[in-house]
Design a protein around this nucleic acid. Structure first.
Lengths: 339, 339
DNA sequence: TGACAGATTCGAAACGTTTAGATTAGCGTT
DNA sequence: AACGCTAATCTAAACGTTTCGAATCTGTCA
């Protein structure tokens, strides 16, 4: 900017005024300055600007795994929304590890991000302190956090799983395997409640051996399914907690020599584009990813626009059961259906 | 830092020296300073640091679509690599649009990223000028760019498609539909050559009506497949350019009432975790995503480490044909196989 | 004619660091 | 006692902006 100012024979203050439109500058100087900018190929240094202004127009976004299609989609939506608003997005993957998450958040905070969207991992960590300091607004995505009172967008997980399990029960299933993620995050907790309530509502027992948990990876789903399938009285249906884990479930079913839905019915959380192009077409609980991403972005953008001291807002969205053909009717129902 | 210095009764220079280890500071002052840092909860402002140092320890990464699993995986690997090196990653999606890409790159450059990894889109744009200015190192990912001479990591696309099509020919297929992306980017160009060469090597004609192109989206794959399937003499096999497009292909096959591989064989570019868990298990060309991401990161990290004027390096990696059961043998071969 | 208002433009401080070079203190030598 | 050397610390300038308040200029009006 100094060079531009010299070349145009004006002060840097005038260049700045023109660039920001903060004061009127005469046509003549405007012309000279614009010419100088073109000649020099000047680009404003956003770092210096950030330092002075105290805002970077950059936000931080952390997710456990970007390769999980649910997060991929949400990240994509969020990125677009902030892009439209002129913000840059720094993306971090925490790999479901609390220490990693804390490091990443520190990294982002060091770089003075204006706000944070966090699909958190583990419990606690530095997140709580950050929200309490209230220097940078934080929006929780997908997962609430005990004792952290801030804006959040989540699914009605309890209800979503309740509906899915109830659907399986209506098909005649009595022993329904349930594969969950690590229990320390809110969605897994709520979904488990939905599972139990659905069984109870139908007067069915909750058999603890039918509940398995894993750390969200394909291999965890595989192992959990193997365990379920080698039970003496194995389940006739399995509900799996997310996309990577259901892939493990399908592989386990294949490897053990069974097939879906003939021998075992499968449903899972999270829908994806190819859910219905292969055989079996998977019955899933679709999350409104577009809405989730947009709402999270909007909550943060609203804070960034200055609405700092409104009370924390919590948005709860509804999932949608996508019934396809990976679950088959059992017993009497099967007969009436096939009749 | 000023407050810390005051609280510890030292100068800011000493605090800085301690923090950066650029000079020895006495045990006594060290202790006072550390105490003050704890008391105040001081965090160094990376923006001010960046301004002074001229480096942000942040890189920019642009991809056409993060929801394409290929890019998702590569982004994930790259993000991890830079995270390990203490860099932050700003992610942008260009949506296969040159103007968007130019805007995003400008946004990143404004923010003084130290380097750029670009899976480019369209042709030209501001990319060329940036590489020539040589202020920030650029690594091209997946796609080369005419006239832009810089580090790059790409696949041997010609060879990969040559192998895949040759495989189909060996199965007895003679009319092989080919669905490509927009032809202005290098991989699509090279792959097309691979397709033609494979046909020619087998003495087969290249029928132009069997070649269709689309803009990488599911719907484009759907439309292209519909066109291929409604040809008078329809192909017995289809090779589809990427993951979203092959989903469209599978949907079109289903909607038209055919099935794969019985009526039509399908293969595609890019492998993904669930390629082999559903029916049919897709035959694909797997790209070494891990290696691609790591190499791209390494090239850039090397430049960032100061190796600025080494000549541009171009890494060409090999794809791998993953043979599954979405392609069936035809004619005489089919008989000998089933015999 | 002189004072005043409004429109432009400018000088300089500030944002929070890093760092070159100056200063100071401590200590062994001669 | 004077000197030089080393180690520790400090002063102040710089990075590239924004912005406050002051300065200048041009008319206008009493």
């Amino acid at each position: 900017m100094l060079h531009v100012a010299e070349a145009a024979r004006v002060s840097v203050a005038t260049v700045s005024a023109l660039l920001n439109g903060t004061a009127t500058v005469s046509p003549e100087l405007t012309q000279r300055i614009e010419q100088a900018i073109r000649d020099i190929g000047y680009k404003r240094n956003a770092i210096a600007r950030s330092l002075k202004m105290g805002t970077t127009r950059t936000i931080g976004l952390t997710v456990p795994h970007i390769t999980n299609p649910f997060f991929t989609d949400v990240v994509s939506v969020i990125q677009q929304a902030f892009d439209r608003a002129g913000y840059a997005v720094m993306l971090c993957c925490t790999d479901e590890d609390l220490n990693t998450q804390d490091e990443q958040i520190r990294l982002l905070l060091d770089r003075m991000v204006d706000g944070l969207i966090v699909a958190r991992v583990g419990d606690g960590g530095i997140l709580k302190g950050i929200v309490e300091d209230a220097n940078v607004p934080v929006v929780l995505l997908d997962r609430l956090c005990e004792g952290v009172d801030t804006d959040a967008v989540v699914l009605d997980n309890r209800r979503a799983v309740f509906d899915a399990v109830t659907y399986l029960i209506h098909l005649g299933h009595r022993r329904i395997g349930y594969i969950t993620g690590t229990s320390d995050i809110s969605p897994m907790h709520d979904r488990m409640i939905g599972y139990r309530e659905a069984l109870q509502a139908a007067g069915l027992p909750v058999a603890e051996e039918l509940v398995r948990s894993g750390n969200f990876h394909e291999v965890d789903g595989y192992n959990a399914t193997m365990q379920l399938l080698s039970l003496h009285d194995r389940p006739s249906a399995i509900f799996s907690a997310n996309n990577p884990m259901v892939i493990g479930t399908m592989k386990a079913i294949r490897d053990i020599g069974l097939s879906c839905p003939e021998d075992i019915s499968v449903a899972c959380f999270d829908d994806f584009p190819w859910s219905d192009v292969f055989v079996p077409q998977l019955t899933t609980v679709a999350q409104p990813v577009q809405a989730i991403g947009e709402q999270a972005a909007n909550l943060l953008l609203d804070r960034l626009a200055g609405n700092r001291d409104a009370p924390p807002r919590r948005l709860v969205l509804k999932g949608r059961l996508m019934i396809r053909n990976s679950c088959r009717p059992l017993g009497a129902i099967a007969q009436s259906v096939s009749a």
